[in-house]
Amino acid sequence: MVREDGKRNFALRDTSGTESSVFSGNTPRQAALKAARRLEPGNSEENADRTELRLREKGTDKVHIYDGWAWNETAPDNKPDWMPDDITEANVSKKGIEHIEE
């Protein structure tokens, strides 16, 4: 369901179908990146553990499935004053879409 500002809501589902968090974004990938940043970060992108993220688009029966991972990185030199020295980066890779029948 699209809001007035064009964003859609996506609920993070676990394997049992319980929805724990809601992320919003213009695209499913944008919401998946937000969810991936909450994962336990690895030391580098290559060493980060991949985790399956299942995001159900609110108002539909679509579940977008991604592999997500996060890692810690040093903030850039031109960072704003409020930004910490170490930041969490994330990436996702789309695996597919499922349709749920409830």
Rank of each mutant, 00 (worst) to 15 (best):
N91E: 13
R50C: 05
N9H: 09
D86A: 05
D85S: 14
N43W: 04
L12M: 08
S24C: 08
D61F: 09
T18D: 13
K95M: 10
G59W: 07
R56G: 07
R54Y: 07
D81W: 05
S93K: 10
P80T: 06
L55F: 02
H64S: 11
K62E: 15
T74E: 15
E52T: 13
E52W: 00
R8M: 15
G17H: 01
R54V: 08
K79F: 04
E52V: 14
I87W: 04
W69G: 04
S24F: 11
E98A: 11
A36T: 08
K95F: 00
V22P: 10
E73M: 08
A70W: 10
E19F: 00
V63W: 04
M1H: 12
Q30G: 08
I97F: 02
R38F: 03
R8F: 04
R37V: 09
D85E: 15
P76F: 07
S16R: 06
I100T: 13
E89A: 13
S44M: 03
Y66R: 02
L33N: 11
A90H: 03
R50S: 11
I97P: 01
K58I: 15
Y66Q: 07
G96A: 05
T15H: 09
P28Q: 03
N91S: 12
T18G: 08
T18P: 01
N78Q: 05
E102L: 06
T51W: 07
P84R: 09
P28L: 03
Y66T: 04
H99G: 12
Q30K: 14
L39R: 06
A90G: 08
F10W: 07
N72A: 12
P41D: 12
H64N: 12
A31I: 04
T60Y: 01
K95P: 01
A32V: 06
I100N: 03
R56D: 06
A32E: 10
S24A: 14
N47I: 08
A75M: 13
R37C: 14
S16E: 14
L33I: 14
D86Q: 14
I97W: 00
A75V: 02
R38K: 14
S24W: 03
R3M: 12
P84I: 11
S24D: 13
V2C: 04
V2E: 14
K94W: 01
P41G: 09
S20M: 08
L33D: 09
T51I: 15
E102T: 13
A32H: 04
N26F: 09
D14K: 00
R56T: 06
G25L: 06
D14H: 06
M1A: 15
Q30D: 14
F23M: 01
P76A: 03
A36L: 04
P84L: 07
P84W: 08
K79W: 09
S24T: 10
D5A: 05
K95S: 07
D85M: 10
P28M: 04
K79A: 14
E40Y: 02
N26L: 12
K79H: 12
Y66E: 03
T18C: 00
T15P: 06
E40L: 09
A11F: 01
R50P: 00
K62D: 13
A35K: 00
A31K: 03
P80K: 10
Y66W: 01
L53E: 10
N43D: 12
P80R: 06
T88V: 15
D49N: 13
L55R: 01
L53M: 06
E40N: 13
E46T: 11
S16M: 05
N43Y: 07
V63H: 11
L53V: 09
E101L: 07
T88N: 09
R13F: 08
F10E: 09
E46K: 07
